[in-house]
Simulated scan of single mutants.
Amino acid sequence: MPSTVTTTDSGGSRVGSLSLAEKARLAAFSLVALAIIALNVALTPVEVLGALFLSWGGGFGIHQVHDMVISGLLWIAVLLPFALMLYHPATG
């Protein structure tokens, strides 16, 4: 038996159709995600964030691979919350 999904959303703003509690939860989640991004960028030294890209040149000595892995994990910690804020699952 085929199923169909009908929605009343006309493709407009999804936030406008949320209840007050859902809007508060969305705002709180967005603030927490932005705080995680800001803290990661502000508290991580520029050399460490750049190590993922700069270590390929060999300027980091014996800890080159170690610095690249740590830098890669930090970039994931910066980009993952941002990606989660942009993700909107399909309703239905």
Rank of each mutant, 00 (worst) to 15 (best):
W56T: 00
S17D: 01
V5D: 08
V48L: 07
W75F: 15
L80C: 09
F29W: 02
L26S: 05
A24T: 04
V41A: 10
T44Q: 14
H63L: 04
V5K: 08
L43Q: 04
A83R: 06
A35Y: 04
V65G: 07
S30G: 04
A77I: 07
P2I: 14
T4K: 08
V48S: 03
G50L: 07
V48E: 10
P45T: 00
G11A: 04
L34W: 09
D67L: 15
V41Y: 05
G12Q: 10
N40F: 12
H66S: 15
A33K: 05
E47D: 08
I62P: 12
S30C: 06
A24G: 04
F53T: 12
M85C: 13
V65A: 09
A83F: 08
L86Y: 08
P89E: 09
L49V: 11
I36F: 14
A21H: 00
L54W: 04
V15G: 01
F53M: 11
P45K: 03
I36G: 09
L43N: 03
A33T: 06
A27Q: 02
L86N: 13
A38F: 13
P45A: 01
I37P: 00
G58Q: 00
L43E: 01
V65Y: 07
E22N: 01
L74T: 07
V32G: 11
F82D: 01
P45N: 02
V41P: 05
G92W: 06
F29Q: 06
H63S: 03
A77S: 15
V15I: 02
R25T: 08
L74E: 15
L74K: 15
V5E: 07
I76K: 10
L18R: 05
V15Q: 09
G16L: 04
W56L: 03
I70E: 12
G92T: 08
G72M: 12
L84T: 05
S30F: 13
R14M: 00
Y87A: 08
Y87G: 04
V65S: 11
N40Q: 14
E22D: 06
S13K: 00
A38K: 03
I62S: 11
S3I: 15
S55G: 10
G58W: 01
D9P: 06
A90F: 14
S19R: 02
Q64T: 08
K23T: 09
H63C: 03
T4I: 08
K23A: 11
L49K: 08
L52T: 03
S55K: 01
W75D: 13
L39G: 12
S71I: 10
A90H: 15
M85G: 13
S55D: 13
A51E: 02
V69S: 03
P2M: 10
A42S: 08
N40R: 11
I62A: 07
S13Q: 02
P81S: 09
I36P: 05
E47F: 05
S3E: 14
I37S: 02
S17G: 03
P81T: 09
M1T: 06
I76V: 15
L34P: 02
E47I: 03
S71E: 11
P45G: 00
I37E: 04
